[in-house]
Design a protein around this nucleic acid. Structure first.
Lengths: 198, 198
DNA sequence: AGGCCTATTGACCGGGTGGTCAAAACAATA
DNA sequence: TATTGTTTTGACCACCCGGTCAATAGGCCT
C-alpha cells in the first residue's frame, strides 16, 4: 500500500505525473486515472488532493507557468547600449528558451488553444500574455525614442504585438513543422528587418 | 424515421453538423453522438457514412481547408508594381481573411495543436503550411531581387518564415486575446518595418 | 406488385470517465 | 497501548464513448 506522505510533497509528485501524462498524450487526453497511474497512486487520491479534474488542470497550468522562467530580462540584455540590440537579444533569448523547453512550450500552446473555449484558462493565459506584451512594449518605446524617424506611424503597442507574434508564430511553426523551421535563419531575417539601419 | 437522402448530400449535412459542434465545443469534445444529434440523425448513420470517428475528423479537416480559400493571390495584388507593396497587400489580405472567418481560423489552429501528437493531422497541416510558405517565399524572392541592399544576409526562406509567423502569431493572439489585439495597429507596425525604405 | 439495394435505425457491447464513500492503513500524540 | 486525525484505497455509481449488428424502411427497377 502507498506510504503516507506530506500533502505538499504528494501534490508535487502528482503534478509532475500530470505533466508527464500531458506531455505524452496531450491535455485533452489527460485523465485523473492516467495521472494516478503515472504517479503510482490510486485515482481517488488525486481527487482527494485536487478536488476535481478541473482544478488539477488549472493547477498544472500554474505549475507550468511557474516553471517556465519566461521573459526574464537579464543584466546581459539590459546592458546593451542600443535599444535595437536589446530587442534583438531579447528575441534571441526567447526563441532559445522556446526551443530548450519544447515540452513546456507545446503544453502552453495547448492550454492556449483550450483557452478559446474555457474562460478560466483564457483569463490566466491572457494575464501571462499581458506580461509578455508589456515587457516588449517597454523595449519598443525605447526603440521609438532612440530612432524616432525609423518607424513612421508605428506605436509601441503595435510593435510589441508584432514582436509577440514573432515569438509565438515561431513557436507554433517549430512545434508542428520542426523540420522546415530554422531558428538561426529566422533570427537573421528578423535582424534584417529591425536592425538594417545600424 | 429519417428520410432517405443521397450519400453526398448526407455527408455534407453531417460535415456541417460536425463543423457546428466543433465550433461550439472544440474538436477535442467532438463526439460521433454529438454530431449525429446536431444533424438530427442516429449516431450509427454517422459511422455508416464515415466509417469511424477518426475519418470523420480528418474529413472535417479537409472540408475546413477546402472552405478557407486560403492565400489566393488575386490579380489586385499581382498588379502592384513594387514587391514591397505586394507583400504588404498580401499580409493585409490574409489578416482580413483570418478575422472574417474566425471560426475557421480557430478550428484550424485547434487541428494544428492536435497535429503535435497526431501524425496524420500533422502531415496534412504541414502540407498546407508548405503551400503558405511557398507563396510567401515567391514574393520574398522578388523583394530581395528588387531591393538587394535592403535585407543583408537574409534569405527568401527566412523572410517567408517570418511572414508566416506574422500571420499565425497574429491569428493566435487574436484568438485568445481579441480585446488587446488591434489589426490596423499591427499592420501599421509591419508596414513600418517592411516598407519604411519607400 | 414484387424484389433489390442501400440508407437508417435502435439495441447492445466493452471500456473509460469523473466523482463519492465507507473502510482501512498509517503517523503522531496522549 | 489506546485515541485521534489525516492519507490512502478499492469498490461502486451513473454516464458517455466508439463501434457492431440485425432488423427495417424507402426508393428504384422490372
Amino acid at each position: 500500500m502507498g506510504k503516507r506522505i506530506a500533502e505538499a510533497v504528494r501534490r508535487e509528485q502528482i503534478l509532475e505525473a500530470a505533466f508527464a501524462v500531458a506531455c505524452r498524450d496531450g491535455i485533452g487526453r489527460l485523465s485523473v486515472r492516467a495521472v494516478a497511474a503515472e504517479a503510482r497512486v490510486s485515482h481517488a487520491l488525486v481527487l482527494f488532493h485536487f478536488g476535481s479534474k478541473q482544478r488539477l488542470v488549472m493547477d498544472l497550468l500554474e505549475w507550468l507557468i511557474g516553471g517556465m522562467a519566461v521573459l526574464h530580462i537579464s543584466d546581459d540584455i539590459a546592458h546593451f547600449p542600443h535599444a535595437r540590440d536589446r530587442l534583438h537579444a531579447l528575441l534571441q533569448q526567447e526563441m532559445a528558451r522556446l526551443s530548450h523547453q519544447p515540452e513546456h512550450t507545446r503544453l502552453f500552446l495547448e492550454y492556449w488553444a483550450m483557452g478559446a473555449r474555457h474562460e478560466e484558462i483564457r483569463t490566466r493565459i491572457s494575464a501571462e500574455l499581458e506580461r509578455y506584451r508589456t515587457a516588449f512594449r517597454a523595449i519598443m518605446e525605447e526603440l521609438l525614442l532612440s530612432e524616432p524617424a525609423a518607424f513612421v506611424d508605428a506605436t509601441a503597442d503595435g510593435l510589441a504585438a508584432v514582436a509577440v507574434s514573432w515569438i509565438h508564430g515561431c513557436a507554433v511553426q517549430a512545434m508542428v513543422d520542426p523540420i522546415h523551421f530554422d531558428t538561426d535563419e529566422y533570427l537573421t531575417a528578423v535582424r534584417g528587418m529591425v536592425g538594417r539601419l545600424g
